[in-house]
Design a protein around this nucleic acid. Structure first.
Length: 266
DNA sequence: AAACTGTACAACCGCTTTCGT
DNA sequence: GACGAAAGCGGTTGTACAGTT
């Protein structure tokens, strides 16, 4: 005999997650860890299947996720890895801490593929296309048919336009802009490190790949940190309670504000 | 201002692999 | 070792939102 079934799908909710559901799931996992995904929705009071909870956590709620745009370096590295590994998104994602396979896959399909096509490279083989117009992507046929009908600018031209605008900035201006973004990001991430530093994410990762070892928040806080760890616990609770504001991780500003006291206490 | 179109990405589906019985 | 469920993974779809007509 095997294991118990994951779930009967009758009466289970599907579609986009609500703030309340995210709140429940995050609260539950942060307090109890993941023993078994099948049990998570039951114990957390969610009408979702374990698989859906796992996906939501891994792709969206995990606190170690690095949200935001991919840098050009990251894109280039993705292209290199893809040429070696193909569509093994999880293997590729393993090279980018804080990025999910789903995120990389989406980015590949929506951005990088186009970029390669502009360079007349086949996104599948990474080889130069022998003749223009040959593509493994059916969408391109549609683009071409539109172009051939004389409809304004093709997608390719629009894409090039947007990049041309960005590239019309002087190199120095661009570098300044990039530096500013990186500085801000690094500041924020270092705060973020402090925030989560007391949490044993090593155990998390280990636990996620090895279901025999369980994660517990109590064990995760370094006792030697004394007062600061209790501040972190308290602040963590605040953070979890106000998670609805954080849920859009693009809005790092909020997180930055929440972490302000930590920055000042450096 | 409304309708239409395209884009980005969260979420689902189904197949494969891993693991417990 | 066989069986079956859980977990992992990649492909695909649905939809919200932004931009365009």
């Amino acid at each position: 005999m095997g294991r118990q079934p994951c779930c009967d799908k009758i009466g289970l909710k599907r579609g986009p997650w609500t703030i309340e559901e995210d709140h429940k799931l995050m609260n539950f996992i942060l307090n109890n860890g993941i023993h078994c995904w099948r049990m998570v929705p039951k114990l957390a009071g969610l009408l979702r299947c374990g698989k859906s909870c796992r996906l939501r956590w891994i792709n969206y709620l995990r606190p170690d996720l690095k949200r935001g745009c991919f840098t050009e370096n990251e894109e280039n590295e993705i292209i290199q890895l893809h040429s070696r590994l193909g569509n093994r998104w999880s293997k590729i994602a393993a090279h980018f801490p804080g990025r999910t396979d789903n995120e990389i896959k989406n980015h590949w399909n929506t951005r990088i593929k186009k970029r390669l096509k502009l360079l007349s490279l086949d996104p599948v083989t990474h080889e130069p296309n022998e003749q223009k117009g040959i593509s493994s992507d059916k969408n391109e046929t549609a683009i071409e048919s539109r172009s051939s009908k004389g409809e304004e600018k093709s997608e390719e031209f629009k894409f090039m336009d947007s990049h041309a605008k960005r590239d019309s900035l002087g190199t120095e201006e661009k570098m300044d802009g990039v530096k500013l973004i990186l500085d801000e990001t690094n500041d924020l991430l270092s705060s973020y490190d402090i925030w989560w530093g007391g949490l044993d994410f090593g155990s998390w990762i280990h636990q996620e790949t090895n279901t025999k070892s369980y994660y517990s928040l109590e064990n995760s806080v370094n006792p030697s940190m004394g007062e600061s760890s209790s501040i972190q616990e308290e602040s963590l609770q605040q953070w979890v309670e106000s998670v609805d504001s954080v849920l859009s991780w693009d809005g790092f500003n909020y997180l930055e504000q929440e972490l302000f006291f930590l920055q000042n206490s450096k």
